[in-house]
Design a protein around this nucleic acid. Structure first.
Length: 461
DNA sequence: TGGCGTATCT
DNA sequence: TAGATACGCC
């Protein structure tokens, strides 16, 4: 019986994406039987919309695919970018498909119908992720505290109560986190923006006159450390725009999709403004290639005066073509070329050569610990992905301890653990590959698939 | 009230 | 010029 697990699944929210109502109903029954709260969504667009709105706190997404196609993998990529645990359940099974799904960031690829023996233990993925997030948060808070201590030591700003306005009084964790990442490579403090004395002209608008006399003279606004929009960071920004799509490029969404620790909505909004007003060139590119004096590269919003376009994104190829038509001179400008390794190479651009080719590569398992700026789209991550092939070898000879030992003992990132490497084509066989990052440990030292139970459990309560 | 885009500041 | 902040609008 599975009763021991119900406490763990209680309150966990699963989004089931399946356009087949009957199939979805069966899966919902199964999931609810094991205590998961389920939201059924019929289409990818609906699912994406729901995820981006963020009104429901989804712990896990199960995408039920009846004929895997580009859309399903596109949705997978979006879910991964939003840092969701995603299970790929497919009518069709083959190793290539499974590998592709895992490579794109799925945690598990299984052949439908979803097996209750797997459902029973899905909560473990969620728990692992939660623990890792808590660790990251704790780490950030610790570093934040260290920063606060440093500020106090330096006596730079003195008593916050006296010097700061209400809003700036106690910076929240997010606002402080740029300090946290000062040491990180992608966001770099240039040291010039740390403290600024505000002119007070505008600031006095929101204070009464008596206050303004004092505050405009004495108020030192602690200006945030400048965020350096490096090529990598900008590339990530552009990828996010690409994923979000036209009309959905709002700063808040971008921040979420970028998933860069410490990066704030305001910073993204500011960058977005710059990009919109500077033809979507990367900061690096702007540096090496000044904008021509003509106003041909003004953004739409600038050209159209007060007309506000919300959530707009660049039209890569189209953008150039249109502008080139308007002003052939632009075709001689240099544009950055985005490569899959997220580095920019300047080169001559032509009409045929797109500005920021809209190719994106979403690295799987992007819950970052440590240097998130460097690794958000690189390989350091802390999820567990796996393949359970339902035509493999039987589990029963391997106990959980053996599995546990293998996982903990794994020292290579994404080392594959294959259980029972015998004949994988006999009925009722399973092959479990777990992708485990270097040095990861799991709660209670276990990432537990209770294999005996999986093998032996019947679907009953 | 929060989030957006734009204007302005440093 | 880049990035942060102010501000009005929705």
């Amino acid at each position: 019986m599975a009763s021991a697990c119900y406490a763990m699944t209680e309150g966990l929210h699963v989004m089931l994406v399946d356009h087949d109502e009957q199939n979805a109903a069966e899966m919902v029954d199964l999931l609810e039987f094991y205590g998961y709260k389920v939201t059924i969504v019929g289409t990818y667009s609906e699912a994406v919309s729901m995820l981006f709105k963020g009104k429901k706190n989804i712990d896990m997404i199960i995408i039920s695919v009846h004929s895997p196609n580009l859309d399903s993998f596109k949705f997978l990529a979006q879910a991964v970018v939003l840092d969701k645990i995603l299970l790929f359940v497919s009518d069709e099974y083959n190793e290539l498909l499974a590998k592709k799904a895992l490579k794109e960031g799925a945690y598990l690829f299984v052949k439908s119908p979803l097996n209750e023996k797997i459902v029973k233990y899905l909560w473990q993925f969620i728990l692992i992720k939660k623990i890792q997030k808590d660790e990251v948060r704790k780490e950030s808070e610790d570093e934040y505290q260290m920063n606060v201590d440093d500020i106090d030591k330096d006596n730079i700003v003195g008593d916050n109560e006296k010097l700061f306005g209400e809003k700036n009084n106690v910076p929240d964790i997010e606002e402080q986190s740029d300090n946290i990442h000062e040491a990180e490579n992608n966001i770099v403090s240039n040291g010039e923006c740390k403290l600024r004395r505000k002119s007070g002209k505008k600031n006095s608008k929101k204070t009464n006159e008596g206050e303004s006399q004092n505050t405009t003279i004495n108020k030192v606004v602690r200006r945030k450390n400048c965020t350096k929009w490096t090529a990598d960071l900008h590339a990530k920004f552009m990828k996010s725009l690409e994923l979000l799509g036209e009309g959905r490029c709002y700063p808040k969404q971008i921040v979420e999709v970028m998933n860069v620790h410490g990066l704030t909505r305001m910073q993204v909004a500011s960058h977005l403004q710059k990009c919109r007003s500077d033809n979507w060139r990367s900061p690096e590119e702007r540096k090496y290639n000044r904008r021509p004096s003509s106003n041909t590269s003004l953004s739409d919003s600038q050209q159209k005066g007060s007309f506000r376009k919300f959530g707009t994104m660049p039209h890569f190829q189209k953008n150039i073509s249109n502008q080139a038509q308007r002003n052939p001179e632009l075709t001689e400008l240099t544009f950055p070329t985005l490569h899959t390794n997220s580095t920019f190479v300047s080169g001559k651009s032509s009409i045929q050569e797109p500005l920021y080719p809209p190719q994106f590569h979403v690295q799987p398992r992007h819950l970052n610990i440590g240097n998130s700026f460097n690794n958000s789209f690189s390989s350091i991550s802390y999820n567990v992905g796996g393949v359970i092939q339902q035509h493999g070898v039987s589990f029963e000879t391997l106990g959980s301890q053996q599995l546990q030992g293998s996982i903990i003992g794994s020292t290579n990132y994404r080392s594959d653990l294959t259980l029972n490497s015998g004949d994988r084509h006999t009925q009722n066989d399973y092959n479990l590959n777990l992708n485990v990052p270097h040095g990861t440990t799991y709660p209670g030292n276990t990432m537990l698939f209770d294999i005996e139970h999986i093998h032996g459990t019947t679907y009953s309560k």
